[in-house]
């Protein structure tokens, strides 16, 4: 177990700044997620930590030891790839035991460790199967087992769930949480799926264009997004943004106001500090219903209570929960 610290970390591919001056500390035993759209540098950051890419500038520390120039296997880390990278010609057992074989562990020791991993990941009975004879979820668990059996200080996971279907993905999320609780390894997890990041991590770091925009616990990031991008990226359905001048209690054209769908209510009669709009379609997601409201030239979404219903084309007033209002500077995009 270990603490990972990135200091002014940079990785340039020619002119392209894939990772641009990142500072981040991942605490011992923490589950940290790097989340962002594709091409934001999150996978590169992970590969830098793994040692698969050479650092351009800055430092990577594990337990205050600079590891920039150590080869991957001397860093005591493990990694699970998006494609799992299982060796297609080896059985489940051989795949999980591969790292131990390289470490020249004696037979009994190896057997007991592989057994421990098989048990931990509920893979008993599949020892002799080849990867192609396994389901997607099972392959995923073999890849995890192969990484965990080496008892790494840090476990790196690169979009490990993205190749699974929706239902299995939800199940593997809980499985991952259970595993983390059990092994208590420091985990750095990369995903583009904000919901995954919110549910899994102790802390998450939102990345864009090679920089970290904001790092914090899921609730911090959700409740106090520091900039427009983070505000829009985290949360589903996404936050509504309205220009400040049309909100009666803001009246500032330099401000962009953000409000989440669940922080809005509507009223059929005019009330103070409300914004006038016209009801449009209602979308039902089963448990939740969302109403879309046309406000000047924007479309605002809001969550309805299960018993609420409203026809299309009605004149309504949107009521804001003022404590949950987010204000951003229009020119810089920063929170004010």
């Amino acid at each position: 177990m270990a603490e990972v610290r990135l200091e002014n970390l940079c990785k340039f591919f020619g002119e392209v700044k894939a990772v641009d001056n990142i500072d981040l500390t991942v605490k011992d035993g923490e589950f940290l997620t790097l989340v962002g759209p594709s091409g934001c540098g999150k996978s590169t950051t992970l590969r830098l930590i793994a040692g698969l890419e050479k650092v351009t500038k800055g430092g990577i520390f594990i337990d205050e030891r600079l590891i920039n120039d150590l080869p991957p296997h001397k860093r005591n880390i493990s990694m699970v790839f998006q494609s799992y990278a299982l060796f297609p010609h080896m059985t489940v057992e051989a795949n999980i035991g591969f790292g131990l074989k390289i470490k020249k562990l004696d037979k009994d020791n190896k057997k007991s460790k592989v057994g421990w991993a098989l048990n931990l990941l509920r893979l008993e009975g599949l020892e002799k199967r080849l990867p192609r004879e396994l389901s997607g979820g099972q392959r995923q668990r073999v890849a995890l087992g192969r990484a965990l059996v080496l008892e790494p200080d840090v476990l790196l996971l690169d979009e490990p769930l993205s190749n699974l279907d929706a239902k299995l993905r939800l199940r593997m999320r809980t499985e991952l949480k259970r595993l983390h609780k059990k092994v208590k390894t420091t985990i750095i997890y990369v995903t583009h799926d904000q919901a995954e990041a919110m549910t899994l991590s102790d802390r998450l770091a939102v990345m864009k264009d090679g920089r970290i925009l904001q790092a914090g616990t899921p609730s911090e990031v959700y409740e106090k997004p520091q900039d427009l991008f983070t505000a829009g990226f985290i949360g589903s359905p996404t936050m509504n943004f309205l220009s400040g001048e049309i909100i009666p209690f803001v009246k500032d054209e330099n401000i962009l106001v953000g409000i989440r769908p669940e922080d809005l209510k509507f009223s059929s009669a005019e009330v103070p500090d409300a914004v006038k709009g016209k009801s449009s379609i209602t979308e039902s997601l089963g448990s939740d219903n969302y109403l879309y409201v046309e406000v000047s030239d924007a479309l605002v979404s809001m969550r309805l209570k299960p018993e609420e219903k409203i026809e299309e084309g009605k004149k309504i007033w949107l009521v804001f929960d003022k404590r949950k209002l987010h204000r951003f500077d229009k020119s810089t995009g920063r929170r004010v």
Partner: peptide, 10 residues
């Protein structure tokens, strides 16, 4: 990625 996985495992 198979090579990289093996590389990480030493």
């Amino acid at each position: 990625e198979g090579y990289e996985a093996a590389q990480i495992m030493g």
